[in-house]
Amino acid sequence: MVNPAPSQYLHTVMLRREEVPGFENYPFDIPAVRHLESLELHPKVTFFVGENGSGKSTLLEAIAEKLGFSMEGGTKNTNLMMHEYRSELTSKITLSRSHLHPMDGFFLRAESYYNFATLMDELGHWSYGGKSLHEQSHGESFFATLAHRLGGHGIYLFDEPEAALSPQRQMSLLVRMHDLIGEFSQFIIATHSPILMAYPEAWIYEFSEDGIKRVAYEDTEHYQITSRFMRDPHGMMQRLLDPPDELNLKG
């Protein structure tokens, strides 16, 4: 157990399993959800990692919706969707919270960021770097939101933020995160980026067919494959383009 830090607004995510009608239908048939009982969150940064379809974004979206964020992303005042729950998972989880109340919050969802940027333009909200988000490149627009909209003393949920960011920008995001953590903020991030998940002391939860388990950074498949590729890019390319009968990238 980690002693709660001043910035820890969420302690635990729990699935009320007795209320689940069955684990045969989506999203409860996802192994990570099917095996979920409770998941403790780090007071600063918690990463959800795993293959596409492993359930990391599904759980993150449910947490975001439970906190009152639009499923399309943005702040709690961003009304891109009108109904209360879109995911059945949202209505079946309980969030264990501290007595502290965040002063700020943002759900950054790469998949629907275009819709969020469009809404900001329609409302004339140009406080994201001084100009329309659509008049910037996707990466610039994304980072403008990270740099200018997040104010500290907040809880921030990011779904694959690396999708629009170069490696250098991902490192800049780490710096921005560190500044906000110093201003009593907490992050929960679903990612594939070995750069982001290297943040010191963060907890990394790996989503797989076996459920959810906490792993060390060096034990993540993302780190191992990237590290091996960087050590021997030519050998890896040879294996990828002329593979043996059973390709094993982790060997």
Rank of each mutant, 00 (worst) to 15 (best):
residue 211 G to E: 05
residue 171 M to C: 09
residue 184 F to D: 15
residue 39 L to V: 05
residue 226 T to A: 13
residue 162 E to Q: 00
residue 184 F to P: 02
residue 180 L to M: 03
residue 215 V to K: 03
residue 19 E to N: 13
residue 35 H to I: 05
residue 27 P to H: 08
residue 74 G to T: 02
residue 161 P to L: 05
residue 103 M to F: 07
residue 242 D to Q: 12
residue 95 L to K: 09
residue 29 D to E: 10
residue 141 S to P: 02
residue 247 L to Q: 05
residue 122 E to T: 06
residue 106 F to W: 07
residue 137 S to A: 01
residue 68 G to F: 06
residue 53 G to F: 11
residue 90 T to F: 03
residue 115 N to P: 00
residue 72 E to N: 06
residue 53 G to I: 09
residue 9 Y to A: 13
residue 188 I to Y: 00
residue 21 P to Y: 06
residue 12 T to D: 10
residue 52 N to S: 14
residue 249 L to F: 04
residue 82 M to N: 13
residue 164 A to V: 03
residue 143 F to S: 12
residue 109 R to M: 01
residue 210 D to V: 04
residue 206 E to T: 13
residue 200 P to V: 10
residue 241 L to T: 09
residue 3 N to H: 11
residue 142 F to L: 09
residue 85 Y to N: 08
residue 123 L to M: 09
residue 36 L to K: 11
residue 191 T to K: 01
residue 75 T to H: 01
residue 247 L to W: 01
residue 24 E to M: 04
residue 246 E to L: 07
residue 188 I to G: 04
residue 45 V to G: 10
residue 242 D to W: 06
residue 105 G to I: 02
residue 63 I to P: 03
residue 67 L to E: 03
residue 97 R to C: 14
residue 40 E to I: 12
residue 150 L to T: 05
residue 183 E to L: 12
residue 52 N to T: 13
residue 127 S to F: 06
residue 208 S to F: 10
residue 50 G to P: 11
residue 118 T to I: 13
residue 147 A to E: 05
residue 34 R to W: 08
residue 100 L to C: 07
residue 82 M to E: 12
residue 103 M to H: 08
residue 224 Q to A: 06
residue 150 L to I: 06
residue 122 E to K: 10
residue 213 K to S: 14
residue 30 I to E: 04
residue 45 V to P: 07
residue 220 T to G: 08
residue 14 M to E: 12
residue 140 E to V: 12
residue 245 D to E: 13
residue 43 P to E: 07
residue 60 L to S: 06
residue 7 S to K: 12
residue 47 F to H: 09
residue 74 G to S: 04
residue 201 E to P: 03
residue 217 Y to L: 11
residue 56 K to M: 12
residue 227 S to W: 06
residue 240 L to N: 02
residue 50 G to M: 10
residue 165 L to W: 00
residue 208 S to N: 12
residue 163 A to C: 01
residue 16 R to Y: 05
residue 49 V to I: 14
residue 189 I to G: 03
residue 16 R to M: 13
residue 209 E to I: 08
residue 115 N to G: 06
residue 94 T to A: 13
residue 187 F to N: 06
residue 212 I to H: 02
residue 190 A to C: 10
residue 6 P to S: 10
residue 8 Q to M: 14
residue 126 W to N: 14
residue 42 H to K: 09
residue 178 H to M: 07
